[in-house]
Simulated assay, not measured.
Amino acid sequence: MKTSFCRFLFSAVAVSGMLLSGNIVSHSPFAISAAQAQTTYTTPQLSQWLETTGNKMVAVVNSDVSAKEKKAKFLSVLNEDVDVDTIAKFCLGRFWRTATPDEQKKYLQLFHQVLINSITDRLGEYKGVSFNIGKTSKNADNKFTIETVLHRPKQPDVSIQWIISTESGQPKVVDIIGENASLSVTQRGDYTSFIARHGNSVSALIDALQRQISRHP
């Protein structure tokens, strides 16, 4: 079973946080806190939000704390700025509706763990990466697309589109499009195909995710 979304999520989210080459802007005038949550945002606000989110990730990547502390800090950023539960439910596709409440709970917990493991495994690979923010546009479904270009040392640039939802009252990443492919759609294909090959059993996917986590150092 593949975990391409987890790998791509880190490549696009955590890596692109190196916008200011480690210069963390902790008090940006456009930074949006929970206390300032609102239902509508201007495109400059959303662009600055994405920059600020990336800078928070840079602080973790470039810090001298232990791997355990980095993992905890990255999990905090993910929970605040990425709608992991919405992504996880989407990735399960139609099987989310057929899963029992207990299976849904276990799956969400495991998805979070697999995601953070995938991220922290690759923390050392992304120094020297930067990115530029392009235009922000509103989609027909009231989500927003923010275009960025990742610059990687000694590698070709990569165009990434971030899909942002503000339905919760503050911006959250709900999908990433890289190389013309939706990463959540790609991961959903992996998960639903796996379940279909195992008798339409969500518990089979849960068992596979648990094994993957148990093998993680």
Score class of each variant (00 low, 15 high):
I116G: 08
R211Y: 14
M18F: 14
N139E: 14
K89Y: 07
K56M: 14
Q212I: 06
S26Y: 14
A35Q: 07
L50H: 01
T52V: 13
I24W: 03
I87C: 08
Q212N: 06
G189T: 12
G134Y: 01
S130G: 05
I133P: 05
I24L: 10
P156I: 05
I213K: 10
K172S: 11
S182I: 09
R7H: 13
N180H: 12
P217S: 06
K73I: 04
P101W: 02
L9V: 12
V149R: 13
W96I: 03
A208V: 04
F30V: 04
E103Q: 15
A31G: 11
Y107H: 03
L110C: 06
T145F: 05
P171M: 06
T43P: 03
K154Y: 15
H216E: 12
V25C: 03
D64M: 07
N79H: 08
T40Y: 01
A72K: 11
K89D: 14
I146N: 09
F10Y: 08
L115V: 07
S184L: 10
S63E: 13
P156C: 13
A59S: 13
C91F: 00
F131A: 05
K135A: 08
A99F: 02
S66H: 07
T100P: 00
V158R: 13
R97L: 10
F74T: 07
Q187D: 07
T42W: 00
S201N: 09
H27G: 03
K71Y: 06
I146L: 15
P217K: 11
L50Y: 00
A35F: 03
P171K: 11
I160W: 00
G169R: 06
T148K: 09
I163C: 08
L209C: 09
P171W: 00
L150M: 14
T120L: 04
S137I: 11
S21D: 15
V65L: 11
K56I: 10
D83W: 00
L209A: 05
T166Q: 12
A31H: 11
N180G: 10
S214M: 12
T52Q: 07
V60Y: 08
